[in-house]
Design a protein around this nucleic acid. Sequence first.
DNA 1: CGATTTGCCTAAAGCTATTAGGCAGATGCA
DNA 2: TGCATCTGCCTAATAGCTTTAGGCAAATCG
Lengths: 189, 189
Amino acid sequence: MARAGLTTERLIRAGAELADEVGFDQVTVSALARRFDVKVASLYSHLKNSQDLKTKIALLALEELADRGAAALAGRAGKDALTAFANVYRDYARQHPGRYAAAQLRLDPETAAISAGGKHAQMTRAILRGYDLTEPDQTHAVRLLGSVFHGYVSLEMGGGFSHSTPDTQETWSWTLDALDTLLRNRPAT
Amino acid sequence: MARAGLTTERLIRAGAELADEVGFDQVTVSALARRFDVKVASLYSHLKNSQDLKTKIALLALEELADRGAAALAGRAGKDALTAFANVYRDYARQHPGRYAAAQLRLDPETAAISAGGKHAQMTRAILRGYDLTEPDQTHAVRLLGSVFHGYVSLEMGGGFSHSTPDTQETWSWTLDALDTLLRNRPAT
DNA sequence: CGATTTGCCTAAAGCTATTAGGCAGATGCA
DNA sequence: TGCATCTGCCTAATAGCTTTAGGCAAATCG
């Protein structure tokens, strides 16, 4: 029997694609084996277990998001940076819903530490350099931006805003305007 | 053999408690049967299937949240109402993490229609009566509030804000202040 | 008090996760 | 090139969750 050429790398990538196609919670070792036309047990040489698979997909998604975020921020500042960064999240979630869901997976502290999660917070801080915030306002603002981006994207994806006017693109622009105004008007303490 | 006295009602309540104890995704027909010291198949006279169980827990959570929201809004307006309502979400999520997770379950349109989901949007609109917003700003604002509440609570619960100063209570108050300011300063179009 | 209803049970099949051990194709060394 | 080793994927087996079908006994009703 010809070998399938499995590697952890390939499995994670395929798992991420599978997540985008059928949803992150439908990502299963069995489904992945099926996709490679291989027996389930074969994957266990490359993956510790099912949780390991999911965690690694989450880490991949976080990295991809961080890379896109960094690219979006390059050469931008102020509202321009804010908008570009926010759109990275929203667009990523639309293009890769399964990966986006994976990125929300709760990671244990050691795993979180080696993840790209820290980069996300740093990039948000970078955006805030364009506004005149000092601590602790800056931290509050980092958290606010995270909340709005995640909350909005998550509700929009979940269909929470569906079949109502005006359309969600308008609300998204309105929201980014509002955040920009908010950050500009909150004076340094 | 004495009968266990199962009813759909009791199963859903026990399922909600189970969700709070072990997490919503660990809620399983088997675990529920174990809790009633009954065989798994017995639950299928009261529940269509596993999905049905989860959906019903979600509906329960949405109702409970709506009831608490309504109670919080009674006799309040403006920032007072905003704060009280926001705290309902946050407190509910802290007290009932499993139920809160259940409330985020994606419902199919028919189920969503009979859920308390509509009440949530209406209550948010009620809060906005204290601010001077006209359409379409009002709809944008409803979505913004939903995003911030859900996003914040979800990140906080997920440990996204952990081990960093200042503590999350401060950020929460800061966020509600910021939203209040934002809504007050956005003039009617 | 007997007849019917209904609640919980046994049995069985299918899917997922995970581990142990085996065979054959790939690789390395002479 | 030929042989030995190693590694990759396989078979087999156990265990848990889901769901359906059919049965028996407890509750209920006339």
